[in-house]
Amino acid sequence: MLKVLMLPRDTDTRDLRQALWAHRIGHRFTEDEDGYTLWLADPAQFDELTHLLERWKRGDSLMPNGHAARAKLNDSSLLRPFALAPVTASLLAACMVVFALMWLLGDIVVAMLAIVPVAVSGGSLTLGTLADTFGSGQVWRVFSPALLHFGWMHLVFNLLWIWYFGRQIEELRGGKLILALSLVSAIAGNLAQYSTGTVLFGGMSGVVYALLGYVWLMSRQAPRSGFFVPQMLVVFMLGWMVFTMTDMAGLVGFGNVANEAHVGGLIVGLVWGWYDARRARRA
């Protein structure tokens, strides 16, 4: 990354940070005892960044056309991160709404969102097949299990990492990419889990590992892209995935984990990251 500017510690950089993301200028701020340092991910954007800095120093409006409404929303420091990453925030909101509905309505929500149609007949549970899912036109079921979470820890763990990785992808590459990556990885993970014979499962874990794989590969193969993930975090996440595949996980209460969904999502993220990293290097 290219070192561009150093600023005193007491400088208010909020408007500048907001404008950099709005203009899709890949960057990173670091902080030390001397103050803030601004780094530019792509040197090809240096002239655009310089022009933006001059406007910022003059106190001019920094937001591009079409961002006026978003700028008003961003006046609230609490809502600013959600306004800058609306697709990622929407994924979190959808998971929380479904979790609340599960608490209010019970198993009917699971039956509606499971990968195959579920019904109760004669006091027993009747499970359909994937062919029933497509034959009945309920195609949303190949994605919807990702919205199901079966406990607070499950929900919080997944949403934490969705926000950590998803916001970075959306701010650097846009909402369309995070939406497409989430949809494809959720479907791939769900189908991978279903292929093992499991029907009643859920969670965003497959998407989490897809986002992890994408960000990690982009940070390694296209360092000027602006992506970053601590290496120890990658080790922890991959170590956790391997741990849940072992018998030891069951002994400590983590036996019912959608491991195949994790692997399916990770593969999607790595392949997508490899492809985008190659394009970034060529550019």
Rank of each mutant, 00 (worst) to 15 (best):
L125F: 08
L79M: 14
L84I: 05
L113A: 02
S76H: 05
L84T: 08
F99L: 06
T126I: 11
I115M: 07
G128M: 09
R70S: 15
L92T: 15
R80K: 11
A131M: 12
A131L: 13
D107K: 08
T88K: 01
N74H: 10
V109P: 08
L101H: 05
G106W: 02
K72N: 04
L125G: 00
I115S: 04
T126W: 05
A83T: 15
V98W: 02
P64V: 01
A119Y: 07
M102I: 06
A83I: 08
R70T: 15
A68E: 15
G66M: 06
V110L: 08
C95D: 13
V110M: 02
L91H: 14
S90V: 03
F82A: 08
L104Q: 12
T88V: 08
A68V: 02
M63K: 04
G106P: 02
L73P: 05
N65S: 12
T88C: 09
A69R: 13
T126D: 09
R70D: 14
N65T: 11
A69G: 15
P81I: 00
D132M: 02
M96H: 02
L78N: 06
L91E: 14
R80P: 00
A93E: 05
V97N: 11
A111N: 12
V110A: 02
G128Y: 07
A119R: 14
A85V: 01
A71N: 14
T133H: 06
T133K: 02
M96I: 07
L91V: 14
V118A: 13
N65M: 09
D107P: 03
A71M: 11
S121G: 00
A85M: 05
L84N: 10
A83M: 15
L101C: 12
W103H: 09
G106I: 00
W103V: 10
N74F: 07
V97C: 13
V98Q: 01
L91G: 09
P81S: 05
A111L: 00
G128I: 09
L127R: 04
